[in-house]
Amino acid sequence: MIATLSPHRLYLLDTLRGLAALCVVFWHWQHFFYVGDDPSLFIASQQPFFAAFKGLYGHGGLAVQLFFSISGFVFFWLFARKISERSISVKRFALDRFSRLYPLHIVTFAIVAVLQMVYSSTHSNSFVYQANDAYHAFLNVFLAPAWGFESGWSFNAPIWSVSVEVLLYATFFLICLPGRFLIPLAVLLCLLGGYLYPEHYKQGSGLLCFYIGGLTYMGLDWLERHAGKARSSAMLSVACVAAWVYLLGFSDSVSTYFVMCVCFPLLIAALASIGRQWPNLLRSGALLGDISYASYLIHFPLQIVFALTSDRLGFSRTVFYQGWVMLLFFAVLIALSLLSHRFLERPAQRFLRRREATPTL
């Protein structure tokens, strides 16, 4: 039997997801210094607030793998039992995911397509991602730019992780249907992801981290049932702190396997367990989680706008080494993400789900 946590939101995980999305912006700040897809003129140490955010500039891309792990945890928590008990159909499951992901994706894809045409009309290349042709447009429209059919990065390239998640949702639904063998199947898919990574790191890291996240949920549920919630929170918190102290203080280099397979699962488990103890802790973080998808998808088109504006005003790209420019960028990004969540994503979800619920004559 698949157990389930109580139905309240885990606000600490919402906050973590929102912060992870913003971490990606630090990792992608280097985009402003690319010439085409060449970052050779980029001086990493001159980026804004480098001393404070050196780790994010160097390894912020791993926040995407954290997304996968959080998704795996949440999906096993919210949907595994419902799927196995047939209380949610494949049509309903697919519609929920489509209505959540597709509207903002197609809007940002179209905006990037236009912006790249504007950019390439005044430059000898596109901004950072170069495979902006009809074939890759087709892949993007069908949310398939990271399924292995692509020949390069294209359009709003950060969508690659969402493209992989679409495949993960399909495998997740299939392994939950029988209602048994869920753990061995999840372990098997973890091992497959580990085998594929890093050569096929998009699909490999997706499989590895999503199913590690799912196994983390099941491990937390087992631990709480046998050790109690308070003791579980204490043990997981100590283990989490120990793992991160080792990584940040005693490890000579960052092992991506250690981060993905140890640090991220312990962080998620500890925060979820603490959130179970104090359900309203960091409730304000729900908003940060709500806008995480928007901030993740909007940041690249906003970078093109900032680059075009800088060029038009006659500034050198070195202006993006200035801290005030980064602060302005984050302020605009968060404002746009709030507007997107309220006026695009939520209305689109309600509209699409209402149409499905409305009977036809």
Results as ranks from 00 to 15, higher is better:
residue 115 L to R: 04
residue 165 E to I: 05
residue 73 F to A: 12
residue 30 Q to G: 13
residue 278 W to M: 05
residue 343 F to K: 08
residue 226 H to V: 10
residue 220 L to E: 12
residue 86 R to T: 10
residue 276 R to S: 15
residue 4 T to V: 12
residue 350 R to E: 09
residue 322 Q to V: 03
residue 102 Y to R: 00
residue 105 H to N: 10
residue 325 V to F: 05
residue 181 F to E: 04
residue 78 L to C: 11
residue 326 M to G: 03
residue 184 P to I: 06
residue 140 N to E: 04
residue 312 R to I: 08
residue 157 A to N: 13
residue 106 I to D: 00
residue 144 A to N: 04
residue 291 I to R: 02
residue 18 G to D: 07
residue 241 V to F: 15
residue 300 F to S: 08
residue 211 Y to L: 05
residue 216 T to V: 02
residue 79 F to K: 13
residue 212 I to D: 02
residue 124 S to K: 10
residue 35 V to C: 03
residue 318 T to C: 01
residue 53 F to W: 11
residue 15 T to L: 15
residue 147 W to I: 14
residue 70 I to Y: 03
residue 159 I to E: 13
residue 200 H to R: 14
residue 206 G to P: 08
residue 118 V to Q: 05
residue 93 F to P: 01
residue 201 Y to V: 12
residue 1 M to I: 11
residue 286 A to N: 09
residue 154 S to G: 02
residue 237 S to L: 15
residue 4 T to W: 00
residue 340 S to M: 15
residue 351 F to G: 05
residue 338 L to S: 07
residue 325 V to G: 00
residue 155 F to H: 03
residue 201 Y to Q: 09
residue 270 A to L: 05
residue 283 R to I: 10
residue 83 I to Y: 03
residue 64 V to Q: 00
residue 153 W to Q: 12
residue 170 A to D: 01
residue 361 L to K: 10
residue 182 L to T: 06
residue 273 S to G: 02
residue 309 T to P: 00
residue 256 T to W: 02
residue 260 M to D: 12
residue 36 G to K: 07
residue 38 D to N: 15
residue 242 A to H: 12
residue 294 A to R: 08
residue 207 L to R: 07
residue 115 L to H: 03
residue 124 S to C: 01
residue 333 L to M: 05
residue 207 L to D: 11
residue 269 A to Y: 06
residue 321 Y to H: 10
residue 256 T to R: 11
residue 56 L to E: 01
residue 21 A to I: 07
residue 41 L to I: 08
residue 227 A to M: 12
residue 75 F to P: 01
residue 89 S to I: 12
residue 31 H to T: 07
residue 341 H to N: 14
residue 235 M to W: 13
residue 135 Y to I: 07
residue 53 F to L: 03
residue 118 V to Y: 08
residue 151 S to F: 04
residue 138 F to H: 05
residue 62 L to A: 09
residue 126 S to G: 09
residue 106 I to G: 00
residue 49 F to T: 00
residue 226 H to R: 15
residue 301 P to C: 14
residue 295 S to H: 02
residue 198 P to L: 04
residue 16 L to I: 10
residue 303 Q to P: 01
residue 351 F to P: 00
residue 298 I to W: 11
residue 223 L to E: 07
residue 83 I to V: 15
residue 210 F to D: 09
residue 34 Y to K: 03
residue 154 S to Q: 03
residue 310 S to N: 08
